[in-house]
């Protein structure tokens, strides 16, 4: 963020200059030397010194906003079970929003997301419904992904860049992956999980999934 600061400073100075520039007044000069001919082509280039555009690297607003929205969804969906989950979630959400828009710190946003997730876990343990817990987990992970993407886009592009299309495609792809995962998981759960030992069975199936996921690398 230090780079952004120096730009704004240089910019502030640059901004201050145009106000002083007209004072020497290129116009009266031009009329004075009208006989000189082609007076505007002289090498001083007083008028040609246009100021550069500002470059700021704030986290992308769209992804950031969506991330906070997802965080809010995660908090709301974990709220019905218990007030504790809601409290933790609200703290996490505040951290996420502050990290995103005020502090502009990846780490703060990440820690905020982690707190939201703790809230989700608490709500799950204290009896939130399966569907709501799964949805709030999805929302938490989306919040994590979108917030990180907002920082990445902000750092590599600039605030003046139109990044809407790129951000939306990224968000849509992430959302799609999570939704498919939920659908598959619930399908398996309802087909398999009606037996006598769903917990043990699920535990092993999911363990298998974790281990297998680590072996994937392409």
């Amino acid at each position: 963020m230090s780079t952004a600061n120096t730009t704004s400073k240089a910019e502030a100075e640059a901004k201050a200059n145009p106000s002083s520039d007209p004072d020497p007044g290129p116009d009266p000069n031009a009329t004075e030397t009208g006989g000189g001919g082609g007076g505007n082509d002289t090498g001083t280039n007083v008028e040609d010194v246009l100021e550069a555009v500002t470059v700021t690297h704030k986290p992308a607003r769209l992804s950031g906003g969506l991330a906070v929205g997802c965080g809010l969804l995660a908090v709301l969906t974990s709220a019905p079970a218990t007030i504790i989950a809601l409290l933790i979630g609200v703290f996490g959400l505040a951290g996420l929003a502050a990290g995103q828009f005020v502090l502009e710190s990846r780490r703060a946003a990440g820690v905020g997301t982690a707190l939201i997730f703790v809230g989700v876990l608490v709500s799950g343990v204290l009896g939130n419904s399966e569907v709501l817990v799964t949805v709030s987990t999805l929302a938490t992970i989306l919040a994590f992904d979108l917030s990180q993407n907002a920082f990445s886009v902000g750092a590599q592009m600039s605030s003046a860049t139109d990044t809407t299309r790129g951000e939306i495609i990224h968000a849509a792809a992430s959302f799609f992956v999570g939704s498919v995962a939920i659908v598959v998981a619930f399908a398996v759960y309802f087909v398999v999980g009606t037996g006598g030992q769903p917990i043990a069975a699920l535990a092993f199936v999911l363990l298998a999934a974790v281990i297998l996921s680590w072996s994937v690398r392409s």
């Binding site: 876990l121 419904s129 817990v133 995962a181 998981a185 619930f186």
Partner: peptide, 28 residues
């Protein structure tokens, strides 16, 4: 996200959290 949800779900005998863990695994 996946592992912690899964672990807590197993310890608490909570199928909801275990299912939630699948989302984390999917993103992995």
């Amino acid at each position: 996200f996946g592992l912690v949800a899964l672990g807590v779900g197993i310890l608490a005998f909570n199928p909801g959290l275990m299912l939630a863990g699948t989302v984390g695994i999917a993103y992995t």
